[in-house]
Write a protein that binds this DNA or RNA. Sequence first.
DNA 1: GGTCACTATAGGACACATCCTATATCTGTC
DNA 2: GACAGATATAGGATGTGTCCTATAGTGACC
Lengths: 193, 193
Amino acid sequence: MSLRHAILGFLSHRPLSGYDLKKAFDGSVAHFWAADQAQIYRTLAGLSEERLVEVERVAQEVRPDRKLHHLTASGRAELVAWLQAPTVAPARREPLLVKLFFVSEVAPEHLGVLLRTELAAAERELATLNAVATGTAPAFAAAPPTQALGPALTLWAGLAATRAWRDWLVAALGTLEGDAPMAAVLAALAAGA
Amino acid sequence: MSLRHAILGFLSHRPLSGYDLKKAFDGSVAHFWAADQAQIYRTLAGLSEERLVEVERVAQEVRPDRKLHHLTASGRAELVAWLQAPTVAPARREPLLVKLFFVSEVAPEHLGVLLRTELAAAERELATLNAVATGTAPAFAAAPPTQALGPALTLWAGLAATRAWRDWLVAALGTLEGDAPMAAVLAALAAGA
DNA sequence: GGTCACTATAGGACACATCCTATATCTGTC
DNA sequence: GACAGATATAGGATGTGTCCTATAGTGACC
């Protein structure tokens, strides 16, 4: 459901083609809402049918025509309504936790393998996000705060979640190395704040 | 893709009916992999067609027949193969972060509303998970560690992620109350560990 | 001279999940 | 006596997203 609205969000800044939108997604929100190219074109067709966007055909001599999508008044209204409506969180899908839940079906050593592989992935993700953060910080500082605060908070949230995940993986691997992993895990569970 | 394997996982302990499976999901992994009842029945039909499970019809006099699903040898092999295969993380879907990204399209006060609503949801989630933790801790301590470690780690991961999310929301709301929110956010971004 | 990547669009098939609905009977509550 | 809720199954429609493919010209690389 959010793809429609994310597209409307991008179009609220300036009119874009499907191709432009794909690049806009990949360069910003892709970490927490990736968009498939085919899906973008289909969604744009739907939005245009609902009169939430208007299509301006821009002829190009050498390449196929670009179809610039302009946000209409009702499109903006739809975006604002969505921003103000309560957020419906989709069900979490964490295959790693499912695996962890049934890990006793395979050899005990495999638990460590599973966690270490995930830790490597988390470190990579963290490195990417950190790079994005250092790269965009000057732009955030220069832009008017009302404009930049949203994107900056988004990035911070992604970083915070990824760091926490990494830290948990490190802690979990730590308990496996002790003599009494189960006791350590139970202690961590009880230490709820 | 994980629903198939989660079902195989549950069936590795004992044969279950579709109805039993629904209850098994709701009572354990629902927090990070919810299962729709209709989807469970359809997936079971597919697994049976692929000979990964075998159906035993148990006639009941008063109610509709139960269809007990037994894991076959190839079913167990499939489960083990999945547990040992690298985990494919599905793309993250965080509508709240998408909203945050485009929040400048609505009145600035709305940012706080958005975060506070999410904070309330996070606190509720945290309370549920903490209740589950205190409720299951005795069972974890009593069970053989090789069996219980997986589920305990799963719960810990869920708790850790939810706590981190709650903490981030509190921190983000804190920056909004200061005189220079943008500077505070940039400081937090830079404080990468 | 061939292959690859880029710009730009979009259809078809399929996977996966959700929502709503239907059937049928028993048990417990008000 | 009525009605809700538990037990037990499953179909149909719809939504949402993924994967593969096709078209078509330009520019760059080797």
